[in-house]
């Protein structure tokens, strides 16, 4: 049985799709069997982020309407054969797939994989409901901005009414230069205010801004490796860049 994790945020554009793609690749690079589901139905993004767009043949609507099996609709990653994607539909047909049907599709994909990661749409409407109903765990993504934190907080509260067992927070686009100068709220503090477990912090990155994927080296790759460790229960270390917090980074993470 796979761990079924939904990636949600409330506010749009905070990095759900980017996180789903990179976390999926990071786990797959470790040999885990990972299936990603693009639940942002009507706005396919995950295939684009994963650079799989031109290999998409079928999508989730084909599966929902019984034209093809869920397994047949999966697109395999070029670098990691154990990483697969169930693409969403390209045009606006979002209410054709009901939550129960969506949950049934994810249940079918559950067999023989380690992780099923669902990229939820922004907002807390029916698309959110559909994505969350199918999941047992949730990652809430926010940026350090006040409006994003506020929306993430609402989403976290809403999640508590679903059958989601554990909810964790990832703070994306952290500007460590500002954190170090005392001009931005550190991720640990944001999680503390939201009363959520911090699963990870991801730095602002030009690389990600340009092509969505963080690559195998560099700051973002290290941050995703930390996040994957926490998700896999191997450590509880939250990423912080060595050069900025330096020797204090170890102590910092215990302060909050």
């Amino acid at each position: 049985m796979a761990r079924t994790i939904v990636v949600a945020s409330g506010k749009g554009g905070v990095g759900k799709t980017t996180l789903t793609a990179n976390l999926g690749r990071t786990l797959a690079a470790r040999g885990r069997k990972v299936t990603l589901i693009d639940a942002d139905i009507g706005l396919n993004n995950l295939d684009v982020a994963l650079d799989m767009e031109d290999r998409v043949v079928y999508d989730i609507l084909d599966v929902a309407e019984g034209r093809i099996s869920a397994a047949e609709a999966l697109v395999q990653d070029k670098d990691f054969p154990e990483l697969k994607l169930l693409p969403s539909v390209k045009c606006g047909v979002s209410d054709k797939i009901k939550a129960a049907r969506f949950a049934a599709i994810t249940a079918l994909l559950n067999m023989g994989v380690d992780y099923l990661i669902i990229d939820a749409p922004a907002g807390v409407e029916s698309g959110f409901h559909r994505a969350v109903c199918a999941a047992k765990e949730a990652i809430i993504v926010t940026t350090p901005h006040l409006s994003a934190v506020k929306d993430a907080d609402r989403t976290a509260r809403l999640l508590s009414t679903y059958d989601v067992r554990s909810v964790g927070l990832v703070v994306n686009r952290v500007r460590y230069d500002l954190v170090d100068r005392g001009e931005a709220v550190p991720p640990e503090k944001i999680a503390q205010l939201m009363r959520l477990r911090l699963l990870g912090a991801l730095p602002e990155s030009d690389l990600i801004g340009i092509n969505a994927l963080c690559g195998e080296r560099g700051e973002s790759a290290r941050a995703y490796a930390c996040l994957a460790d926490v998700i896999e229960g191997r450590s509880d270390r939250i990423y912080s860049p060595p050069d900025s917090r330096g020797i204090f980074s170890f102590f910092r993470r215990r302060t909050y």
């Binding site: 006040l146 934190v149 506020k150 907080d153 954190v179 005392g182 001009e183 931005a184 709220v185 550190p186 503090k189 944001i190 205010l193 939201m194």
Partner: peptide, 15 residues
């Protein structure tokens, strides 16, 4: 704005 101020603001929003 300083982090302390921002934190306070955040705390107020999430009261």
């Amino acid at each position: 704005m300083k982090a302390a101020e921002l934190t306070m603001k955040m705390q107020q929003t999430l009261v």
